[in-house]
């Protein structure tokens, strides 16, 4: 297990961005009556601000739980979760979640969907619509503002969800298998879009996926989780040059890394 706990704030936030995450000995055990399941046992790791980290691992290994912990929606049974040097105690306003299932609100237009996060946080109508408009264009859905989710494909709906998250200007974007419900071709396409969007906004991203190739393609670092009770088996740095196009997936370096990770999961 590679443990990389850094305490120097400068190292964690090298470009002056916020959104550095430190997990220190985190454990998460769920109780159901007399049973107790430990999803996550002793995970420690650091996410540098502005970096894209994927988390891969077998099903049920607690990957989603880590996202909840960083978002402050759950508290670890033991250990600490820290963002920018401060402990995470309650739901954070500087994180935004994107889910696997379609979470668009079918009774609202695309624009109002994207503005929804801001609306729930009390931002005024004119301001939030302006921000939403920007985000709609950023994710490549310009022209669809007045459409309703049922008129959009699955990939487009996920882009709406991403736009909604980005509209809230989080320092950390938490994505829980966001492309899991899409077919492979759409996954590649939206993945390329996501890379483009990330490269222009440079948020910290924690990206959970079961698709190793997708993880390697998108990230700066891949965390490999073991079976439950999960530990961090490895943190693999991805040194492929950016910006990355889909062609990089056929390079030897890429294939090699993917194979390496698959071996760790086996």
């Amino acid at each position: 297990m590679t443990s990389m706990v850094n305490s120097g704030v400068e190292t964690i936030n090298p470009d002056g961005h916020d959104g550095a995450v430190v997990l220190d000995g985190v454990e998460m055990t769920f109780r159901n009556g007399a049973d107790a399941t430990t999803a996550v046992a002793d995970v420690s790791g650091t996410v540098r601000a502005g970096s894209f980290v994927s988390i891969v691992g077998p099903s049920g290994c607690g990957k989603s739980t880590l996202l909840d912990l960083v978002a402050g929606l759950q508290s670890p049974t033991s250990g600490a979760v820290m963002v920018d040097g401060g402990a995470v105690r309650k739901p954070r306003r500087d994180t935004a979640l994107v889910f696997q299932e379609d979470s668009t609100l079918h009774w609202r237009t695309v624009l109002d969907n994207v503005a929804f996060g801001l609306e729930m946080r009390g931002v005024g109508k004119r301001e939030r619509r302006a921000v939403a408009q920007e985000m709609v264009e950023l994710v490549g859905l310009g022209g669809f503002e007045k459409h309703r989710p049922r008129q959009l494909s699955g990939g487009m709906r996920q882009r709406v969800a991403i736009a909604r998250a980005l509209a809230m200007n989080p320092s950390i974007l938490l994505m829980d298998e966001p492309f899991g419900a899409l077919d492979q071709q759409t996954r590649h396409h939206v993945g390329a879009e996501l890379t483009r969007i990330w490269e222009s906004t440079r948020k910290t991203v924690l990206f959970v996926t079961h698709d190793v190739a997708e993880a390697v393609y998108l990230s700066d670092q891949v965390w490999v989780m073991s079976k439950r009770p999960s530990r961090l088996s490895a943190c693999i740095d991805i040194t492929l040059p950016r910006p990355r196009s889909l062609e990089v997936m056929s390079t030897d370096a890429f294939q090699h890394t993917v194979a390496q990770i698959w071996e760790m999961l086996a």
Partner: peptide
């Protein structure tokens, strides 16, 4: 998933009810 969306935004129960659950 819609309830999870509401709680992930850190909104109050009333807001989640009024803006998400009831319309749905």
């Amino acid at each position: 998933i819609l309830s999870r969306l509401g709680s992930s935004l850190g909104s109050s129960r009333l807001k989640v009810a009024w803006k998400i659950v009831l319309p749905a």
